[in-house]
Design a protein around this nucleic acid. Structure first.
Lengths: 144, 144
DNA sequence: AATCAAATGAGACGAAATCTCATTTACAGC
DNA sequence: GCTGTAAATGAGATTTCGTCTCATTTGATT
C-alpha cells in the first residue's frame, strides 16, 4: 500500500483507519472500473466488518481529494477510476459495446482551457457514441 | 411539436400516443439536461395521467432511435440531451461547477475512429475534470 | 365500427444509495 | 503509555430510483 496516498489523506486531516486502508488497497490493486458493490466486497475481504456506508463515504472523500473519480458508461451505474489521466471510449448506443482506445487529441486542448477558464485540469473523458460495425446494418429496424 | 420527430416515430413503427407526444414536447421545448423525474413532471403538466413507467419506456425508445441520449455528469444521476452533435464540459471535481464550451477538436478524430473501428459515430462527449479557479486556492484544505 | 397487438398506468417489487445514531477508535496532548 | 475528544464507523432503517407485472385502454388498419 503506497505510503504516498496515505500521506495525502493524513495531510488533508483525515484519520487513517482500516476501512479507508482497505478501500485504498482495492482501488490501487484492482485499478479501474469497479462499482461500489465490488469495492465493498473486496474491501470486506481485507477488513471484514467494513460497512457499506463507509465505502460510500470513503469514495466521496477520495473523489474530493482528486484520487478517484466516478464514471458512468452505458447504463451500468457508476464505477470508479483513478482520477489522473485520460479515458477514451467508443460506445455503441445500440448493443452497448464499449471499446477503449488510447490515442487522444485532448492534451493540446487542456492547456488552452486552463488558460481560458482558470481551471487546473487533472483528467479528461472522451466518449464517442454511435453504431458499431455489427449494428450498422440493422440500423432502423423499428418497433419489436 | 415538430412533425419531423413524429414521423420518425411513425416510420419506425411506433404508435403516436399522448404520453409520447408529451415527452417529445418536453424534450424539444426544454432541450437539455433534464432528468427522468423532471421529464415526468413536465409531461404530466401536458398529459396528467402520464405514468412513470411510460416515461422511462419512452426515453429508452427515443434513445434507441438516436433522438436523445442519457448523460451522466458529476454525481447527479442521468439527464437527457439531444443525441446529435457534441457536448463539451469542464467540471470542477470539488465544487461541482460545470462550464460548457463549444470549441472542440474531436471532429477530426471521428473520421479516424470510424475508419479504424467501423463505427458510425453520431455524437461525442468531451469532459475535462479538475479544479476551477475558485477551488484552486483551497486545494487541500482537508477534513471538515 | 370492429379488430388486435401495442401501449399504458397503478402499484408491487428490487436494488442502490443515504441517513441515523449509538458505539468505537485514531490520534494529539500529556 | 494513558486519556480525552472529535472523527469515524457499522448496522439497519429509510428513501430514492428504476424495473416489472398485468389487467385495461387505445391507435391504426381494415
Amino acid at each position: 500500500m503506497s505510503p504516498e496516498l496515505i500521506d495525502r489523506l493524513r495531510e488533508a486531516g483525515y484519520k487513517i483507519t482500516p476501512p479507508r486502508l482497505a478501500v485504498l488497497e482495492v482501488i490501487q490493486r484492482e485499478g479501474e472500473h469497479l462499482n461500489p458493490n465490488e469495492i465493498l466486497a473486496q474491501a470486506q475481504a481485507i477488513h471484514p466488518q467494513t460497512g457499506r456506508a463507509t465505502v460510500y463515504r470513503t469514495l466521496e472523500l477520495l473523489t474530493n481529494l482528486g484520487i478517484v473519480r466516478p464514471i458512468y458508461v452505458g447504463d451500468s451505474g457508476p464505477t470508479y477510476i483513478r482520477a489522473e489521466g485520460g479515458h477514451h471510449h467508443l460506445v455503441c448506443s445500440q448493443c452497448g459495446r464499449i471499446l477503449d482506445f488510447e490515442q487522444c487529441v485532448a492534451d493540446s486542448m487542456e492547456r488552452e482551457l486552463e488558460a481560458r477558464f482558470g481551471f487546473r485540469i487533472k483528467s479528461h473523458l472522451l466518449e464517442f457514441y454511435g453504431l458499431c460495425a455489427d449494428c450498422c446494418g440493422e440500423e432502423t429496424t423499428g418497433a419489436s
